[in-house]
Amino acid sequence: MSVTYAAVQWNRQKKLYDSVIAGGVALYLGRFVGVGAMVHPQATAETLLIRGLGTAAFLLLHVVLSIGPLTRLDRRFLPLLYNRRHLGVTMFTLALGHGVFSLVQFHALGDVPPLVSLLTAPARFEQLGLAALTILFLMAATSHDFWLKLLTPPGWKRLHMLVYLAYALLVAHVSLGALQSERNPLFVGVVLTGACVVLGLHVAAWGAGRGYVEVCEVERIGENRAVLLKLGDEKIAVFRHGGKVSAISNVCAHQGGPLSEGKIVDGCVTCPWHGYQYLPETGASPPPFTEKVAVYETKVEGGKVLVSRCAKTSSI
């Protein structure tokens, strides 16, 4: 059974989200070009637009990168996460506009083809920008669920983790480009602050995600049985078996059955709905089956069961 794809599965929240993005971008570009024309009256409209599009894309990339750790630190940011792909595609569109206008303005008037001129330009910051734009293009082009299914979730995630490489390339692009022509220390401070915010949020979210949460006393879990632990929106089944404690996602990979209501049969966690089985240590179904559920670290200290806040392995 499958659902027929649509270009975008529109709902009220997505329309509102996209309206805010479009309005914010239009407002930013309008103000940037307007103020820029007053401060730099000698600058052409093309130059102001190139700078406006570039700074808007760079700013939006910071927002995109900050949403993930922000939601891990405070779940009130979750609505921002739901449509992050739209934000990413908008950011790429702005970056593409910056790149195309720059290519036309700086490389289209010579005898050499524009792309060859860019690739062989002595100022390396442009090539760094092109490399980042290529990564952002691949991410935007594969943002639809069709690609998520085709590339498989781990493959899709690996591709989209390249955003960090793109960010590093763009920091270098800005540092070796705009910051060399605009010597104002304020701009250096803004770029450094942005990098510190992104890095700081990731470190803080990583720190908050570490550590364990206390479940109950080990005797309260019956042998080969489980208790249910709720961690925010996550439900975890904590099993006791053969003197060990294991924790896996409570959601069966088959049809979402509650694994904590099942029991361990023949060494495997057995779903009460349809009998799907998982090894409690790895979360994987015994061969030849390939289902897998997320596994959490566990330990027993002072007779109490502790479970890690973050999954050790994810469901596939």
Partner: peptide
């Protein structure tokens, strides 16, 4: 043929994935 979810999908869906199809055509 590659994804049953694309059966009956409209032109909008095809337009959205078109750039990725050009970029990743050997894989497809």
């Amino acid at each position: 043929h590659v994804d049953a979810g694309a059966r009956g999908a409209g032109i909008g869906f095809r337009a959205v994935i078109a750039a990725g199809c050009v970029a990743l055509w050997p894989l497809l």
